[in-house]
């Protein structure tokens, strides 16, 4: 969680698997109390819209939608891959970051982000694919994200990006906030009903036809 208020940024961060829903509102309460704000005084809400663990992405989405609906404010959906890249840029001073999140099932969520005058910029498109099918880059790129711990060799062989010491492979709300603030300033917020998760992996079940189930009629 992170809050920008009167030019000052405050944040809370905890890594506790499966505790998102319990922690969400108490952490927001703390942040707002420190800033002396009520939820209805928030001007915009940015959230990590994925890709990532489906349920986690939905918890963030539902919360952002609800705040936006209740406070009648815009939502800024921020790519998790962009947030991880921005963190590596912020903490490591890098300019080109190749982000890979372990997507299980022998695949990664992939996105290559570089700094530009207009902020952080995506090269090509975000995708979910086997490590062998990521984009070809060069050694001016550095690696970030959990995917590199699992598929480091393959990712490096294909992308050419460099493995560097990074403190943390997870996204931080400060970077979601920074990207979201820029989107807000540029009028790129959306209404609550248009704040949608981006899963990248969209084929999550097989239809009966795909499974070859016969129907009598």
């Amino acid at each position: 969680m992170a809050l920008l208020s009167n030019g000052k940024t405050a944040s809370g961060y905890t890594v506790e698997p499966r505790m998102h829903a319990r922690k969400l509102l108490p952490m927001l309460d703390e942040l707002l109390a420190e800033a002396g704000l009520l939820p209805t005084q928030i001007d915009g809400v940015a959230f990590a819209r994925g890709p990532g663990a489906f349920t986690g992405v939905r918890i963030a989405t539902a919360a952002a939608q609800a705040i936006a609906l209740a406070a009648d404010i815009p939502v800024m959906p921020v790519s998790t891959l962009a947030a991880i890249a921005a963190r590596a840029m912020r903490e490591g001073g890098h300019e080109k970051v190749a982000v890979a999140i372990d997507a299980r099932m022998n695949e990664v969520y992939w996105g290559a982000y570089q700094q530009s005058a207009e902020g952080i910029q995506l090269l090509g498109e975000e995708r979910v694919c086997p490590a062998e099918q990521v984009a070809t880059l060069d050694s001016s790129w550095v690696a970030a994200g959990t995917g590199w711990a699992t598929y480091g060799e393959q990712l490096q062989a294909v992308s050419g990006a460099q493995l560097v010491e990074l403190t943390d492979p997870f996204p931080h709300a400060l970077d979601v906030l920074a990207i979201g603030t820029l989107m807000y300033a540029n009028g790129n917020g959306v209404s609550a009903e248009h704040a949608a998760p981006v899963y990248l992996r969209n084929n999550v079940a097989k239809t009966e036809a795909e499974r070859g189930v016969a129907r009598a009629r």
Binding site: L28, P39, R58, I59, A62, A63, A66, L69, A70
Partner: peptide, 20 residues
């Protein structure tokens, strides 16, 4: 269903929280 419940629970509880 857990995932389905989370959607509505987070939405509803957060909506109430925002409105106080």
């Amino acid at each position: 269903l857990a995932g389905a419940l989370f959607s509505g629970a987070v939405a509803g509880r957060t909506l109430a929280w925002t409105l106080g």
